[in-house]
Amino acid sequence: MLASHAQKYGILIALIVACIFLTFANEYFLTGRNILNVLRQTSINGILAIGMTFVILTRGIDLSVGSIVALAGVVSASLATTSSAAMVAGGPYPVAIAFGAGLAVGMACGAVSGFVVARFNVPAFVATLGMLSAARGLTLIYAGGKPVPNLTDAYRWIGTADLAGIPMPVVAFAVIFLAATWVLTSTRFGRHVYAAGGNPHAAKVSGINVPRIRLLVYVISGGMAGFAGMMLAARTGSALTQAGIAYELDAIAAVVIGGTSLAGGIGRVTGTVIGALLIGVMNNGLDLMGVESYYQQVIKGGLIVAAVMLDQARHKQA
């Protein structure tokens, strides 16, 4: 019971404690602009982590999101660049086409991983490890190893614009968070995701098409990664082939810190978002205080292991 409470509220308490500490430690932490900074810096990892939550809820894992970030980034950017060396013939195309292409690329990568997992029972770790390598290679082939610069203003809007003072990446993060929460808590598909992860056999017996659910969660994760990749390109002004390296680790960390069980079936998007925010707050706070980034990695490592230890304690009780 204690462990369960610690699991449910521990991460939120940790976030609040971190914020209180940083407020006293640095005069600029609790300013409007810095809070927007934290949210903006968290948005890309947050969106990846939300997609990852769907996958982990079904007992899977998606190691390929970082590579999909880069692939979707260069493909969509090549449709929205004004640089003649990097553009697809006839470009720049309207931003809707560029975004559509990036999203489609991400979802297609996810569909391939999902199909391999669902249809051939290849462990998710292996299937997405393959996609991690393949998508990175395709990125380099597609872009010839070079960045895709000079993106149109319309394309950069999603990364740089404000909506009533709130940066677009934060708006997108919030919308995706609300949508994902709704899907998981209030739709039949959401209930099937929990069922397929919690007890696949029982889910199958009760008539749920488990392979279809498993396929779709990778499509969702791939789509989120594609979207995040375009937002990253829009934010930095150029799609880079090295973008997103090791992003999967931070995304998995956010999900795990947020209390979603790697054993499947248990977890909430809210927890994931709090986990992502905790990582973001920590990075930002240590930057403000001038602490070397190497410490950030050590602290993050400790948090991940502590979160899983809590998860294990709960399993013993259940």
Partner: peptide, 24 residues
């Protein structure tokens, strides 16, 4: 301030955002 951003544009962007806040 003197910190590494590992040759990375995205890392430097985050670092600079935080520095602009810490040293207005």
């Amino acid at each position: 301030e003197q910190r590494t951003a590992n040759w990375s544009r995205a890392e430097a962007q985050t670092l600079m955002e935080n520095w602009l806040t810490a040293h207005p």
